[in-house]
């Protein structure tokens, strides 16, 4: 940037005399300073800040990428663990279900067996009951017949003598009580 200014100075000084014109230099310096100031304010500073921002953005972007990567890994791990756990649990549940089902089945079959035997016992009881009822009926009937026959026979067959003897013993019995 300084080169054109020097060239300009050189070019301007060539026709007249070779030397340093102080005021021109001063003006040049002042104008240069103004230009530099203007440039700095309106061009360089925004550019610098923009660059800074960019750098920051890139940095954060990179960091984010790293984080995401880590997270991804963690999630992967986790999902693996969950899957494993789920597997284990599933097998446990299945195991338990199987066990319960087996127990239930056992219980049911036992109950059924018990019920069947109970039914058998009940049926036997009913039969036994019927038998006993019949026997009791037969017994009363036989007893009735025995008594009725005995009455008839005794009424007809007992002689007066027999009765007299029986009465005598009955009288003795009564006198003694």
């Amino acid at each position: 940037m300084t080169l054109p200014i020097i060239l300009a100075v050189a070019e301007a000084s060539t026709p007249e005399k070779f030397g340093l014109e102080l005021h021109v230099v001063l003006i040049q310096v002042v104008s240069f300073l103004i230009l530099a100031g203007v440039l700095y304010y309106y061009a360089i500073r925004p550019v610098l800040s923009t660059m800074d921002e960019r750098v920051k953005k890139i940095d954060s972007g990179l960091r984010y990428a790293d984080e995401v990567k880590a997270k991804l890994e963690a999630v992967q791990h986790e999902s693996e663990a969950t899957a494993k756990k789920a597997q284990a649990e599933a097998s446990k549940v299945i195991e338990e279900a199987r066990k319960t089902a087996k127990e239930y089945l056992d219980r049911q079959s036992q109950e059924t067996a018990a019920k069947t035997s109970e039914m058998l016992v009940k049926a036997q009881q009913v039969i036994e009951l019927e038998r006993r009822k019949m026997l009791a009926e037969a017994r009363t009937e036989i007893a009735r017949l025995v008594v009725a026959t005995t009455e008839r026979v005794l009424a007809r067959e007992l002689s007066e003598d027999d009765r007299g003897r029986y009465n005598a013993s009955a009288a003795r019995e009564l006198s003694n009580t």
């Binding site: 007893a143 008594v147 005995t150 005794l154 027999d162 029986y166 009955a170 019995e173 009564l174």
Partner: peptide, 26 residues
């Protein structure tokens, strides 16, 4: 009574007869 005796005294009855025994058996 078929054979035997039955004695009534007031409310009391003393019985020693064949009929009573048959009834008891029945």
């Amino acid at each position: 009574l078929i054979a035997g005796l039955r004695v009534h005294v007031g409310d009391d009855i003393y019985e020693s007869s064949v009929a009573a025994q048959l009834a008891a058996l029945e």
